[in-house]
Design a protein around this nucleic acid. Structure first.
Lengths: 197, 197
DNA sequence: TAAGTCATGTAAAAAGTTACATGATTCT
DNA sequence: AGAATCATGTAACTTTTTACATGACTTA
């Protein structure tokens, strides 16, 4: 049985052949928004995938830097990821420590709590802005291609839009929580305008 | 060092004394939205917390059903969770398999992809409706108390609002993705109204 | 010369899931 | 009679994180 991490690697390799090092970089950067892995997880997983015949590698010799193993997806690998992509699945569970803290925020000093949530609001706004810049760049460089479902850029575009949306929502909630803690009262959910009590 | 699961248990026990069984139920239900655990994780963690002096238990004998150990938070436990709640922390990483699938959706048949996202849109709308019902019930049963930061209900209210917001956003994105895949073209992000091409 | 990047691995520990194990009572 | 609930644990396994390990080349 092939684990989710395996499909993450196949998904990256289906776009372009990469080394384990490259894969680990992406899984701690770009696609790290929805799936992460360290190199210590990537290298053994590549061995498993290769044993299963889903990827294969060639050694690329380099003069100025260490040689590397560049992995590609085999026809069987493509079949495997295609089957996985549309297969029914359960909603992924969330593990969000800030929400866990929110659940116990009643125990803390409201001002200190507000500071924590203001800080996280800022971070999510920054992240949102970052995704927005990436979308604008993508739209500038490849315009129409982003609407074509058969291209990798279309898929990248989808995930970036989700990034923007979820960071916006998260930041908005953080701001609302902070406001509640700061004034100690107020009405309405995080999406409504907050009227002074 | 005390793990996040430990604070999850302390957060639940700070509201009311509970058995391991009760804690496991909450961590696969109510608070399962942001943190989950099975009973096999809960029981050993309670032992660790008790050894650390953060919780203590009394055996409650019952006639009609098995005896149980009811745990409560000690003064040291309250100090620990209070310190944790407002302590600076990193943004929790997400592991979302549907987003991972979205990243590789370009490999699949658009119609099959659309079906998957319609299905998940439905699930998130259902979940949103469920949270909304809970908020309405909460507002009905305890009105003004929900605005008082020192009460557990205030904290519950915060997390439910986040539940509503994030499910709404998730459902909206799923619908937008499905629409993109269904018509194979279109413009604008998930929040704009989609004009027919 | 020291720190950072490129590159690939292994080992140990922690966190989490699934399965095993038991037993009384209550509901269908 | 069989399934579900209450109740507590352990064992095995999988997944993920942190640390150990090495070495060449490049940049500050």
């Amino acid at each position: 049985m092939i684990a989710t991490l395996g499909y993450a690697l196949l998904g990256l390799l289906a776009r372009e052949p990469l080394s384990g090092y490259d894969l680990a970089q992406r899984l701690t950067g770009r696609v790290g928004f929805f799936w992460q892995a360290r190199h210590s997880q990537v290298y053994p997983e590549l061995v498993r995938l290769e044993k299963a015949g889903l990827v294969s590698h060639t050694v690329v010799e380099q003069q100025d830097r260490p040689d590397k193993k560049v992995y590609s997806v085999t026809p069987e690998g493509f079949a495997a990821i295609r089957a996985w992509v549309t297969a029914p699945m359960e909603v992924s569970p969330r593990r969000d420590e800030l929400l866990l803290k929110a659940y116990s925020i009643w125990l803390a000093d409201p001002a200190e709590g507000a500071a924590l949530f203001r800080e996280h609001q800022r971070r999510h706004l920054d992240q949102q802005a970052d995704y927005e810049r990436r979308v604008i760049r993508l739209e500038g460089e490849h315009g129409a291609q982003l609407q074509r479902p058969g291209t990798p850029l279309f898929a990248t575009y989808l995930t970036l839009q989700r990034g923007i949306g979820s960071e916006r929502e998260y930041a908005s909630w953080c701001g609302w929580v902070a406001a509640q803690l700061e004034r100690g009262s107020g009405a309405g959910g995080p999406d409504e305008e907050q009227a002074e009590a």
